[in-house]
């Protein structure tokens, strides 16, 4: 269970470039729920994910995961219970190390790292088995440097690494945005399978309305650092990409209207 309460973050505070990225976001996510976050560019959706992951500390507010206050924990401390996949396929893996070695490093997430042998035979067998369950032919490439693999293959492996030890929370930050359509579909299929199989609590930022509609059980819409809409249950099940787009249009219209209305009022009353 993730509870974020009144989370605020301002970048470059006090300078002309000041950006108020998060303006009091409050969000509670039930265990085993799969939540999509959509929003315009600069709406703060990736910032929210990074705030939860601990990439930076928030200015105000509280973040709790499974009843533990993690607001002041560092990124690697939180990672003991949080799995992450990044937008950039290069971010989640160590390019010069082999596929098996990368996964071996991931298999110690949340555990101590001592002088035990990292890649023993039983782990190798398990890696090959779990890779073959992705149905991407990756089990034959255990010893290739992961840098030689395509973006889609790397994202699928990063996903496997993030969920190798079941995380309390899985954060997916537009993890298919940098892929070609076919690879993106493949990674989305794998994402859905893994989340369903392990009943993971997941938070996925996405650009694609189609993805948001097809996947998960909840859609959170963000705009200008706030949550403006939260579709759950039957409402989420009914939602179509066009509905979501029209909601965004409505928000945009309201914004455009405001200065015009102000001008009108000024003219008629002053």
């Amino acid at each position: 269970m993730l509870i974020a309460t009144d989370v605020r973050k301002t970048f470059f505070a006090g300078t002309p470039n000041e950006v108020r990225s998060l303006r009091g976001v409050t969000l509670a996510i039930e265990p085993s729920s799969f939540v999509n976050i959509i929003g315009t560019n600069g709406s703060g959706k990736s910032t929210l994910l990074n705030a939860i992951a601990g990439v930076f500390l928030v200015d105000q507010g509280k973040i709790e995961l499974g009843g533990v206050d993690i607001t002041h924990q560092s990124e690697h401390q939180r990672a003991q219970r949080i799995g992450r996949v990044f937008q950039n396929p290069f971010s989640g893996t160590a390019p010069t190390m082999s596929v098996a070695e990368n996964i071996a490093v991931a298999s110690r997430r949340g555990k101590s790292r001592g002088l035990g042998w990292s890649l023993n035979r039983s782990l190798r067998t398990e890696i090959a088995e779990r890779l073959s369950s992705l149905k991407m032919g990756l089990e034959d490439r255990l010893d290739s440097p992961i840098g030689n693999l395509s973006g889609g293959q790397r994202q699928a492996i990063t996903l496997l690494m993030a969920t190798w030890n079941k995380p309390d929370l899985l954060l997916l930050d537009e993890h298919t945005a940098a892929l070609d359509p076919r690879s993106a579909d493949q990674v989305i299929r794998v994402t859905d399978e893994i989340i369903a199989k392990d009943k993971l609590t997941a938070l996925m930022v996405t650009h694609s309305m189609q993805q948001a509609v097809n996947l998960g059980d909840r859609i959170v819409m963000m705009h200008q650092g706030n949550i403006v809409s939260d579709l759950q249950g039957a409402e989420k099940a009914r939602a179509k990409p066009d509905d979501l787009l029209s909601r965004f249009d409505a928000i945009r219209r309201r914004e455009q209207l405001t200065p015009a209305v102000a001008e009108l009022l000024k003219r008629s009353y002053i």
């Binding site: 560092s74 401390q77 990672a79 160590a94 490093v105 790292r113 001592g114 035990g116 042998w117 990292s118």
Partner: peptide
């Protein structure tokens, strides 16, 4: 040593610090 859990984490940290942070090592 570079093939132990600690050593492998060290190589990963040199290769990609962001990745090793996301896998719960400093």
């Amino acid at each position: 040593f570079l093939q132990t859990n600690l050593g492998t984490a060290m190589r990963a940290a040199g290769d990609n610090p962001q990745m090793i942070r996301a896998l719960s090592a400093s």
